[in-house]
Amino acid sequence: MSDLKINTDLARKILTGFIHSEITRVGFSKGVVGLSGGVDSALSCTLAAEALGPDNVLAVCMPYKTSSKDSLDHAELLIEKTGVQSVTIPITDLVEPLFEKLPEMDNLRRGNVMARTRMAVLYDQSAAFNGLVIGTGNKTEILLGYTTLYGDSACALNPIGDLYKAQVRQLAQAVGVPEEIINKPPSADLWEGQTDEDELGFTYQQVDRLLYLMVDQRFTPEECVQAGFEDDFVRKVLERVQRNHYKRVLPPIAKLSNRTVGYDFLYLRDWGT
């Protein structure tokens, strides 16, 4: 669908400007990115290197023992290509004690523990490097809630969260992310052989187009069906978007006073800067 095509020069200018502005205005000059070897973090890392200078970006690789070799190789490739600083901190020794203690854990629980352990490592590196965590979640996964709350979704700022997966790929290509990273099947790589599309039950190509109509064009479910999407698919995606909204907002605070954070204490984060 041509509507998902973006002007990559303009996107690049706005997103590098955003990274630079939102980091420097609060007194920082550096950023930290968790690098998985996938296209999302490759794009965030490349944009950060362009915005802040490669010396001011730390790529943190956090493999688990089952992480695919491709993931590590691709992360390494991206580090070489962008010239950013890097550190590798395997999480196997950190998560295994809990897995051993709770052998009944299924893949979902184990995956969440791994994502949240990576978050803890990343935020520690953020303090050590004196840089802010730059997010790597795209619009498709944010809308679908295909993310671990307080895990991979945790960040100080997110340059790519308003780009659908197809747009991430388009921009990644324009900023020089290597083809092998762009073209491989997307995977959270939390267990062997996992792919996003198997787990979700539909392709990014399908869901990007549907979400674009639902969210950006404000189509009703009926109008989406009229536009050619299967009724079941539309319902399933709509339900996912709705059910996972809690991941996109701060936890509600029970209102008691006249002025309550989250309701009528209204300031942007950039307040005063």
Binding site: S2, D3, K5, I6, N7, D9, L10, A11, I14
Partner: peptide
């Protein structure tokens, strides 16, 4: 506020 990124060179 800038909004509406498509293929055009401006928003």
């Amino acid at each position: 506020p800038g909004r509406g990124l498509g293929e055009a060179p401006q928003l």
